[in-house]
């Protein structure tokens, strides 16, 4: 396809952005991941030594796949992100469905409500949850004063709290694409299903659910991808026992000052993220072809 000059100019914008702020920094990260940590500024060995020879090694990567800590952290991230995505879907689907089925005049208002939490700072909201969940927090004191529990429940510093926090923070990312898809569902398809003898539940399974699948995919990716690398929520709500790769990378970088290793962690994480995106696009292409 031959592009006109003006079109090239328009396309150049996003490309330039991606090259400057994603590709170039990422190349830098890859370069650092091949170096070794050392004391100095910057705290890693240069790519070319004094004699002009390239010094690059895959030692950092080898460590990631041999040291049990990193594998457990990756696995913890995948598990927590997957759980959070599943719960966000279970919670977000009825949300999106209700908004999409509301009278057209009220939909944008409901949508506004769904994204209203974004108007306050993310950190403030997570700290608010700490206030609610901690042993002397509102939930525990209320339950105690009602006589439902004797001792405070351990709500904070659990993996469940981290999952919960991620669901809470990312729910709008699930609701929005689901809503966008469900809102376009032709109601006459559901009426036709009912007319042909399908109960509402069967009509949902046969018509609404397959129709919403692209939205389900998009919502799941929008929650899963940032959740996989999430650092703040597991740190604040999950406590020291919640192992996620974002936390490990943070401590390698800031505590151990091992830039090359945390760069390697990042590269592997990115590959893990790109894999589901490629799978998603392949699935979308299959859907279109069918």
């Amino acid at each position: 396809m031959k592009l006109s000059g003006r079109r090239k100019l328009v396309l150049a914008g996003p490309w330039l952005w991606l090259i400057l702020f994603f590709l170039a920094p990422f190349a830098l990260v890859v370069k650092i991941s091949l170096a070794q940590a050392e004391l100095g500024v910057p705290p890693y060995t240069p790519l070319l030594d004094a004699a002009g020879h390239i010094q690059a090694s895959l030692a950092n990567y080898a460590l990631l796949f041999t040291d049990d800590l990193y594998l457990r952290a990756y696995w913890g991230s995948v598990r927590i992100a997957a759980l959070a995505t599943a719960f966000a879907l279970l919670l977000g689907y009825p949300f999106a469905y209700a908004i999409a089925r509301a009278p057209a005049s009220r939909r944008s208002f409901y949508l506004l409500l769904a994204i209203a939490p974004f108007w306050t700072s993310f950190l403030v909201r997570i700290y608010a949850w700490m206030g609610l969940l901690r042993p002397g927090g509102l939930i525990n004191t209320t339950l105690q004063s009602l006589g439902l529990i004797d001792a405070p429940l351990k709500l904070m510093n659990t993996e469940a709290a981290a999952v919960f926090g991620i669901v809470y923070a990312y729910l709008p990312f699930m609701v929005l694409p689901l809503y966008a898809r469900l809102e376009k569902l032709d109601v006459s398809l559901l009426e036709a299903a009912a007319d042909l003898g399908a109960t509402p539940w069967r009509a949902f399974r046969a018509v609404t659910w397959p129709w919403s699948l692209p939205g389900v995919w998009a919502g799941c990716l929008l929650v899963f991808i940032p959740a996989l690398g999430e650092f703040v929520i597991p740190e604040l709500l999950g406590g020291p026992d919640t192992l996620m790769i974002g936390k490990v990378m943070w401590s390698e970088f800031f505590t151990n000052r091992d830039w090359p290793l945390s760069a390697a962690i990042t590269v592997v994480l990115l590959v893990m993220l790109v894999a589901p995106i490629v799978a998603f696009q392949a699935a979308a292409r299959r859907n279109e072809a069918a």
């Binding site: 006459s188 398809l189 009912a194 007319d195």
Partner: peptide, 29 residues
């Protein structure tokens, strides 16, 4: 409810299920 009435309706837009084949559409009811 409509699903328990022994009559059927053809919709103006036809309302064919887009993710099903012709035969699956007919088999649905």
């Amino acid at each position: 409810p409509p699903y328990a009435r022994p009559i059927n309706m053809m919709f103006q837009s036809y309302a064919l299920f887009p993710h099903m084949t012709v035969a699956e559409n007919v088999a649905f009811g």
